[in-house]
Design a protein around this nucleic acid. Structure first.
Lengths: 261, 261
DNA sequence: CAGTGGTCTAGACCACGGG
DNA sequence: CCGTGGTCTAGACCACTGT
């Protein structure tokens, strides 16, 4: 009862018709997620080229043996990532290039990922102190509460690139210096069961004071990129407050953002 | 402020039980969206305080006369905004403060919204030129293609704050100088039917060259915040390439980001 | 153990866009 | 007009969390 007949091969014949997907119902991985991953991979490898239509959801779901909501969930997740665009009366198509690698969002990740990989990190300071007014306010603690202050110099190719100063509630976790240099701060938090939820960032610039310049091997007055961040876990606790400075001659924030309708 | 007896409310008494929602099935506004808006408003006004549980989805749906998926869709949209957190076996609760005003994402919006509101914008240059190599590459055009170059000085309180230089494909839209100063670039695009989809940004810093300093009323060598952006519409066309410089003494990017699991 | 969210199904009608 | 995605329903079972 294949009523659909042969879909007339219009200019934009759904490439998806000839694709096959391997869905494993025994897997603990959700079906919608399996489908989303395979679609994403197909897009990434060029099997689904920019502008290609995906074909309507009904056909897709019957062909895959899934319900329509499940297929929609998979597609929606890729729309949220910016890889697909849906239009009523038209269809779902692969976004016209340029998105590819989302780069994730801004510097939270390059801190998170880069730690312990390419760059070198040297812990300059790692001790418990009483929180000053600004730090206490940022972390939502009482002034004078015990916090860990952490200063790190991050370098690449033997050249200093950034000077990171962070404050954390002392009760949060144990900060072993050796592990910090090898593993990175956010990874250490995650292993202790802290799941990051959101962060508030301010990015600015200023000229290097003599002391800062010396630390970063710059000349005094050189342009520095500054970043102040407070990160919160999923219970709403502030888990980190940081003041970072980057050599503008060697570093810039690079990120992509999606416009939500 | 009316206090509710104890400082901490019992977690097992969902505040939501006593709330009523006005859902209009005749409205063109989707039910899940109506619910989401009213929940968000309740959170914003403190009716739902941080840490409060929302009560389970089944009860909620029967009490509202909605199906569970519809209620889930409403809740999910707020989870995506970072206002709610869901945990299996626990429940859905309001995130512990600090998120409140999402501020949207970074400068795309303050450009977008601020235009035509508080700040003053003076169009310094608005003409058609042949695209240079860099501009052509950024916009995906052939070198020498006709583009509109736009230079604007943005001020607040009578003081210059930023110098914005933008390039747009000439065929895209008509750029009336008077309207530009009153309405803003992105709003003009939207009225012509261009829907922004994504943008790629690079934020850096440098010291002001004499010419730049003069334009911004800064001293030469002062720190400047720089931003380079290419914006794309939902078909993947590059619709704008811009190089902006901000006085670091008067401006910083301030944004919030959510960590996706 | 009981209760929660996470996933999935098989239908339905509506609103919009294009020919 | 037809086909598309957008919304909605009323169930179901599973996986995880806490006691």
């Amino acid at each position: 009862m294949v009523k659909t007949g042969g879909p007339t091969r219009a200019a934009s014949a759904p490439v998806l018709d000839s694709m096959d997907f391997a869905l494993d119902r025994g897997s603990p991985v959700p079906l919608y997620y399996q489908l989303a991953q395979q679609l994403e991979s197909a897009i990434e490898h060029g099997v689904l080229a920019p502008g290609n239509l995906l074909g309507n959801e009904i056909d897709l779901s019957t062909r895959l043996g899934l319900s329509r909501p499940t297929v929609r969930q998979a597609i929606q997740s890729l729309v949220d990532k910016g890889l697909l665009v849906r239009r009523r009366g038209v269809g779902t198509q692969v976004v016209h290039s340029q998105v590819k690698r989302p780069l994730e969002l801004s510097s939270l990740y390059d801190d998170l990922e880069a730690a312990g990989q390419g760059p070198t990190t040297r812990v300059v300071r790692n001790e418990r102190v009483a929180a000053g007014a600004d730090v206490a306010a940022a972390l939502g603690l009482a002034e004078g509460a015990e916090v860990v202050v952490l200063e790190r110099l991050r370098s690449t190719h033997g050249q200093p690139m950034a000077y990171l100063c962070n404050y954390l509630p002392a009760a949060l976790l144990e900060l072993d210096t050796a592990r910090l240099e090898a593993t990175g701060l956010y990874r250490m938090m995650r292993t202790v069961g802290i799941t990051l939820h959101s962060a508030r960032q301010t990015v600015g610039a200023r000229c290097a004071a003599p002391e800062e310049a010396a630390r970063l091997d710059e000349r005094p007055g050189a342009a520095l990129l500054t970043m102040e961040r407070t990160a919160y876990d999923d219970t709403g606790r502030a888990v980190e407050f940081g003041t970072h400075i980057y050599r503008a001659s060697r570093y810039a924030f690079d990120f992509q953002l999606l416009v939500r309708p």
